[in-house]
Write a protein that binds this DNA or RNA. Sequence first.
DNA 1: AATTTCATGTAAGTGGTTACATGATTTG
DNA 2: CAAATCATGTAACCACTTACATGAAATT
Lengths: 186, 186
Amino acid sequence: MKGYNETTYAILGILTTDCRSGYSIKQFIDRSLNHFWKISYGQIYPTLKFIVQEGLAEVHTATTSGKPDKNEYTLTPKGIETLRNWLENPIEQLPAERNEILLKLFFGRFQTSETTISLLENYKQKLQTRMETYQSIEQAIIDCADENDMDSMYWLFTLDYGKKVTRAAIDWCDVTLEKFITKEES
Amino acid sequence: MKGYNETTYAILGILTTDCRSGYSIKQFIDRSLNHFWKISYGQIYPTLKFIVQEGLAEVHTATTSGKPDKNEYTLTPKGIETLRNWLENPIEQLPAERNEILLKLFFGRFQTSETTISLLENYKQKLQTRMETYQSIEQAIIDCADENDMDSMYWLFTLDYGKKVTRAAIDWCDVTLEKFITKEES
DNA sequence: AATTTCATGTAAGTGGTTACATGATTTG
DNA sequence: CAAATCATGTAACCACTTACATGAAATT
């Protein structure tokens, strides 16, 4: 454990919701942030420990009847301050995505056109599946959100981002495939 | 060093071009693959060692007059086979991008509208800069590419991907900003 | 004479996942 | 009673970056 990284802030942010334990943080991320943020227990528990060490949150063991003991974390004023400070600062740099399909395509002169085409078709299919997932999540949010639910609004914003970017990638697949197919015919 | 990872294949791919040393591989990546693939010397040199160990390439020290000695790597038939095999296999899964701006936006109910708006504007500005970079690279490729240059075609494909996806992200910024601004007015 | 470019490499550190260990309670 | 879910944690491993060490030649 080193310093304040994005994972720390992500957990700090989640602690402002009703999720207060390592286990429920994981669930929250898997359900709500999954399309742009993933995290494993191997990060969550050490980070929670770090957060307490830094005085950003306090732990209290909740002994509920029926279920196992739970470590519940509550943000301290310092924790809230730290989170808000991070939220207010613009991101330092755009995420640099590694893209395996672009890497394969880049070395395309080493392959046959058919191989490249099937690579692109496979990629497009995966993007379409992702798009369908986004759409069904969106529908689920719209169906169960009450009017004044602010969280669901922000959730929809992030989903919209995913949808727009995925749509653009699918379009690119179509355009690129088109170029390969006309090249094959000629 | 463990096994065959994407970095290994990336380097194998570059070794099919005129780049045959660690130093020139780094240059190649910085010049041509930078928008979807980055790599450091700390990866390149150990990976080259691994590639030789696996019999995918051979090293020969080239003593050029004037410049320092250079370790030149040449793919073996096994190396070519390994690369081609990787190129032919579809990608296993879509890259899962972590997106800091979406994370910040997600916790937006913890901020003022003005903060969110300036966050989005800053992000949009960064995307626009990226777009301009793509455009000028594209122009440079078009200007200096000869008709039959296959590499430049594939290069343009990957750039087109970057442009389309960035365009979509900029659009999303506009749409989302619009929603915040109308919300502020009401 | 100083700086940049060419060239190769390593050690330490960061950020992360996977697999494992443990154990209670609930549901089928 | 077996399986799933709830719950917390760690050790090993992987991928990668940064900073450093070295040194020669070219450029300014």
